[in-house]
Design a binder for these strands. Structure first.
Length: 542
DNA sequence: ATCGCAAACGATCTTAAAGGGAACTTTAA
């Protein structure tokens, strides 16, 4: 269990206690614990009670709960409160715009205990009758419910992949003479997955019989760890064909003359087309002319020389600048841009103006300690509602790299949101535009944007577009990358790491870059240190 | 529930935007 996972339990407990009007100071203590636990770099799971008590924000009661959590995967106080709360109430808490206070009101006054019931209450126009609720709130909530319901049964790619691999392992060990492969959207590295598709030379009935205790069977569908499993039965001489066809997508498959084959590669060969790995098969440019596909032109993880966009203990990250930089160095990168949050990001402990001096000094000191590695100073400066950045020019000029990102006011309409981002791009200090749409996969749709305007502005103002590699964001959407590329937009593939382990999120961004068709020449962080330094030197104006 | 200052107890505080409803509460990042 990671610290962030442990922290989540206390956040949940705090939220639930608020539903029951528990002592607000107690609730605050759990919130404080949530905040401090998230930012500790040593795994709490390895500490005993005495060591836990040394952590600020953790006292006797919370230390005990962490020990319980370690041993049982849960703790009594949470179990008890969960027991008296209908499970649907937890879904209501996920709706943006509904906090504990409003959820409590909906629950107690309307007797609503699930998303479905709330949807019905809204359709009957009963929600807006409650004090503090109006037409707009009702509309927003309805939109959110529909969004959340459409996301039911969907999972993030990075959570599904290890489960799928585990499943493959199980099958391969049990049926040593049979053939299996992952296929479908999972094989094409879609950011959100609704089923694990497997091509199998063995039938589903046999699998169900042999693994009956591992699977759940519901409404004629097979589930493993809550995820839908789709078995595509094939026979040995058709394995390659069925793998190819089920991998999809249809528009890609339609370009090929198909024949029975044991190996997928043979289908490419007989069509006189170079082998195209599944991740690239959604790209429209490639589908149009698969024969001229040249994989070496596209960006790969080995091409990435530097880690851009990362957070340290200076804001809401869990590792020091030194530890993060050293991790990057040990993993073969040449440089790191540390980009902690700016002053408006209160919740993320953003850098106040008087801290910046010490932050910059820390970076200089780490540079003096690390051989063959460079740490550049950056800032993830908040884009305010009006599109301005939250530091003035004098302060922004102190950093090597300014990443401009939106973290608040996420419900703007297209016109306002576009105008805001446009202004941020035009700021002479903005070098990189962070997570452009503000989306959180499965949880929040981003604000709408006029992307053509944004792409054009990026090119005109020499601003690089981030491909945020955090598997919860993967923002910009890979489907937009082709269009951006046509405008001449350059990309930076950034892990947005909040700990050294999250540096490895980079790979998910690489997958998106490949799906979208980012060429090496379009990518900022394939530059070596010297070239990256030159890029920094090319400030837009001084 | 935790902390800190002090010895049993008092203080605990992100803040701006949104929305609803005409001064304020709730929420989000």
């Amino acid at each position: 269990m990671t610290n962030r996972e442990i922290a989540k339990y206390f956040d949940l407990l705090a939220k639930l206690m608020e539903l029951y009007d528990d002592n607000p100071f107690k609730i605050r203590s759990y919130r404080n614990a949530y905040n401090s636990i998230r930012q500790i770099s040593i795994p709490l799971i390895k500490l005993d009670e005495k060591q836990l008590l040394e952590i600020h924000g953790i006292g006797k009661a919370i230390a005990k709960k962490i020990i319980e959590l370690k041993e049982k995967g849960t703790f009594d106080a949470l179990d008890r409160i969960l027991e008296k709360t209908p499970p649907g109430i937890l879904d209501l808490l996920k709706i943006k715009g509904l906090g504990p206070k409003k959820v409590k009101m909906i629950w107690k006054e309307l007797g609503v205990e699930s998303l479905g019931e709330l949807e019905y209450a809204i359709k009957e126009n009963r929600l807006s009758l409650l004090k503090g609720f109006g037409k707009k709130t009702q509309e927003n909530i309805l939109k959110q419910i529909l969004f959340l319901e459409s996301m039911k049964g969907h999972f993030l790619f990075y959570k599904v992949l290890p489960v799928a691999k585990e499943l493959m392992q199980m099958f391969l060990e049990k049926y040593t003479n049979e053939k299996f492969s992952l296929t479908g959207n999972l094989r094409r590295y879609f950011p959100v997955i609704s089923s694990i598709d497997i091509v199998s030379s063995i039938g589903i009935d046999v699998i169900i019989k042999d693994f009956s205790d591992q699977f759940e069977y519901k409404d004629g569908e097979l589930f493993y760890k809550k995820i839908k499993i789709h078995i595509i039965k094939t026979v040995a001489n058709k394995f390659g064909l069925d793998l190819f066809v089920s991998t999809g997508p249809k528009f890609f498959v339609d370009k090929f003359k198909l024949e029975d084959n044991i190996e997928e590669t043979a289908i490419f060969k007989s069509n006189n087309i170079p082998y195209i790995p599944p991740v690239f098969r959604d790209n429209e440019k490639i589908i149009q002319d698969p024969g001229s596909f040249d994989e070496s032109g596209y960006v790969h993880i080995e091409d990435i020389k530097g880690i851009i966009h990362s957070h340290t203990v200076w804001s809401d990250g869990s590792d020091s600048v030194f530890d993060l930089a050293n991790y990057c160095r040990q993993n073969g990168y040449q440089y790191l841009v540390v980009s902690d949050h700016s002053k408006s990001a209160f919740y993320a402990n953003g850098l106040k103006i008087d801290q910046i001096k010490y932050y910059l000094e820390d970076i200089v000191e780490v540079n003096s300690k690390l051989q063959d590695f460079t740490v550049f100073s950056g800032i993830e400066s908040d884009i305010l509602s009006d599109g301005s950045l939250d530091y003035d020019d004098e302060i922004l000029s102190k950093f090597d790299v300014v990443i401009a990102s939106v973290h608040s006011g996420l419900r703007m309409n297209k016109e306002k949101a576009t105008e805001r981002i446009l202004k941020a791009i035009q700021n002479p200090f903005t070098r990189i535009l962070g997570h452009v749409s503000g989306r959180i996969l499965l949880a929040r749709e981003g604000y709408p944007l006029d992307y053509e305007t944004i792409f054009q502005a990026c090119v005109e103002n020499n601003v690089v577009m981030e491909i945020n590699a955090n598997p919860h964001r993967l923002d910009i959407d890979w489907k937009l990358i082709d269009r951006a590329r046509d405008w001449g937009v350059k990309f930076s593939i950034n892990p947005d790491a909040h700990s050294k382990y999250e540096v490895d999120y980079l790979k998910y961004g690489i997958f998106m870059a490949q799906k979208g068709g980012v060429l090496k020449e379009n990518c900022l962080n394939i530059k070596n240190t010297l070239d990256f330094e030159r890029w920094i030197g090319k400030k837009k104006m001084l």
